[in-house]
């Protein structure tokens, strides 16, 4: 049994949140640079500005995007870890609270009805999974809502199959148009339950851009969906062009014999994601 004070988790969340808010992932930056080579006119102007933005954010220690997002925290806790100190939820929220204050990040969380701001960007959206071992893995994903708003969940029938899945993905991106800040990164959950499917889609967004699902039939859906999306011609910021998405990342889980849930979680081109193992 390993003992771990939740203060250490709080401090790790703090460090991850600060870094994530100011940094594009390397795979995102690479994909944007490659995309810029393929565009002209306003689309090229948009991608050049986005690449410059990454440099400015790094040099000036500024948030990459003013929408510093809802704090999504994915925790995997080994079952041999005994947590001490403040309750886990409080420790995670404390890390978020301190990072959003010290980083001069925008506080974007409010009551859904009164719209009153919580003023410190808490509560974090926290998922906890208990796994084997004595390690704690923390992943931090600041999720902007321009793209989150364009995400969709489909309860397909088994008869709709692969073609139905592809249609759900491509229709979601087409209907989103210029609104979610294309080029987007598309996280797709296939299977599970209504809620589990949405979580799979979110987890798919924690994969590096350009990574491929090890299951060949799933990888085939990723490739085909990306090709169809980029044939839509929406382009960077909706200015037309070849790059509407930087990638499609699909995750699958067993589902019920009567169903085929598909969740499509849209991520803008500001892919910010950091993780650490304690």
């Amino acid at each position: 049994m390993r003992t771990l004070d939740t203060k250490e988790i709080s401090n790790a969340v703090y460090a991850l949140a600060l870094k994530a808010g100011r940094t594009l992932t390397e795979s995102c930056r690479h994909a944007l640079a490659c995309a810029a080579e393929k565009e002209t006119g306003a689309a090229r102007f948009a991608l050049d500005t986005i690449l410059e933005n990454g440099e400015v954010a790094r040099a000036e220690e500024m948030p990459v995007c003013q929408d510093t997002g809802m704090a999504v925290v994915l925790l995997s806790i080994g079952q041999e870890v005994f947590l001490t100190g403040d309750p886990l939820r409080e420790a995670v929220d404390d890390g978020v609270r301190r990072a959003y204050a010290d980083g001069f990040f925008r506080k974007s969380i409010c009551d859904p009805l009164t719209r009153k701001n919580t003023r410190d960007n808490t509560p974090a959206h926290l998922h906890v999974e208990i796994v084997g071992g004595d390690r704690v893995e923390i992943a931090f994903l600041p999720k902007g809502f321009g793209s989150e708003n364009m995400s969709r969940l489909f309860m397909l029938t088994p008869a709709e199959g692969k073609e139905g899945i592809l249609k759900a993905i491509v229709d979601t991106v087409r209907e989103a148009g210029s609104r979610p800040c294309p080029p987007v990164y598309v996280g797709v959950g296939i299977g599970g339950s209504f809620d589990g499917c949405a979580l799979l889609a979110k987890k798919a967004l924690t994969r590096e851009v350009g990574s491929v699902n090890p299951r060949e039939d799933v990888a085939e859906i990723e490739r085909e969906a990306l090709a169809r999306i980029n044939a839509l011609g929406i382009g960077p910021q909706g200015f037309h062009g070849n790059t509407t998405a930087l990638g499609v990342s699909c995750e699958v889980a067993p589902t019920h014999i009567a169903g085929l849930p598909v969740a499509v979680n849209i991520q803008c081109h500001c892919i910010r994601f950091e993780k650490v193992t304690l």
Partner: peptide, 27 residues
């Protein structure tokens, strides 16, 4: 159209910012 997601570029190009209404709305 401004370039969505280029918040640092735009923030860096702002020379003055003054709140003129609705302070309760924060950002």
């Amino acid at each position: 159209a401004a370039i969505g997601g280029a918040g640092a570029v735009y923030g860096n190009a702002i020379r003055r910012a003054e709140l003129v209404a609705f302070p309760d709305l924060l950002s």
